[in-house]
Amino acid sequence: MAELRAILVDSEFVFVRYAFIMGVCASVAFGMVGSLVVARRVTYVAGAVSHAVLAGIGAAVFAQRSYGWLWFDPLFGAVLAACVAALLLGLARFAATEREDSVIGAIWSVGVAVGLLFFAAAPGYTDPMSYLFGNILLIGVRDLWLVLALDAVIIALTVLFYPQLKAVCFDEDFARLRGVPVRMAYTLLLLLIALTVVLLISIVGMVLVVALMTLPAAAAGRFTRSLWQMMALASVFCLVFVTGGLVLSFRADLPTGPTIILVAGAGYALALSVRSVARIFAPQAQ
C-alpha cells in the first residue's frame, strides 16, 4: 500500500496516477451497468457492442491518417460505433422480425471485420493489440477527462432512471402498464452498456470487456439481495480488481488488461467458494 502511494505521487509515474484515477472513477459505472447486464442476462449484448467498437476505432484511425482528420479521435470513433451498435440491437429487439441473436452475431463479427479492413486500408502500420487487449498505462490527460465525462454521464443516467431500468429488466410488461416507455428505457440500457464498453476498452481492451463488466457484478450477486446493493458491491469489487490488477501488473511487469481480468476471475472464484462454504455451514431449515 505504501509502495502504491509512493508511485502515485511520483512525477515519473504520472501515467500510473492517471490509470489509478481512471480505474477508481470508472469502477462505479462498471459496477452499476455491469449489475444491470448480469441481472437482465444480456452479457452477449455487451460482447457484440464491444466487438463492433473496432469498426469505429478503425474508421477514426483511417480518417486521421488518410484525410488528416486529427479531431476524429479513436475514442470518438469507439463511442459512435458503440452507440450505433446499441441502436441497431434496440431496433432488432423491437422493430425487426429477425431473431435477436442472429443480429447480435452479425453486429459482433461484422464490426470486427470492418475495423480490421480500416486498419489495413489506413496508411502505415496499426498495431491492434492495445485496442484488443487494452493498456490503461497509455492513457493521457485528455483521454482521462473524456473518460471521466463519460463516466459521469453513465452514473447520472443510471441513478436518475434507476426505477425504470430496474422495472424494465425485471418485468417489461408491468413496466409498460405503469406508463414506462419501455422501448426508450431498454434503448437507454443499451446505450449505457455501449458507453461503459468504451470506458472498459481503455482499461482491458475489447476482447476482455465482457469479463470486467460481468465478473464483479456476478461476484456481488452472491452476497446481495437487491439491485442497488449489487451495484454498490460490484463497484467496490471492480475497484479492488482494477487496482489490484494494476499494482500486480506494474510490480510483475505484466500486461495490465489480462492481469486485471485474471484478478477479477480469481475474485469471482473466491466469491463462489465463500458463498458455497457459507451455504454448507448454514443452519438447515426444518
Binding site: S226, L227, M230
Partner: peptide, 21 residues
C-alpha cells in the same frame, strides 16, 4: 433477479418516465 419483495411491490408505484425515487 436481485430484487426484494418490497421492491417488487414498489413497482406498482412507478409513474411513467418520471425520474427519481
Amino acid at each position: 433477479f436481485p430484487i426484494t419483495v418490497r421492491e417488487v411491490v414498489a413497482m406498482g408505484r412507478l409513474n411513467g418516465a418520471r425520474p427519481g425515487f
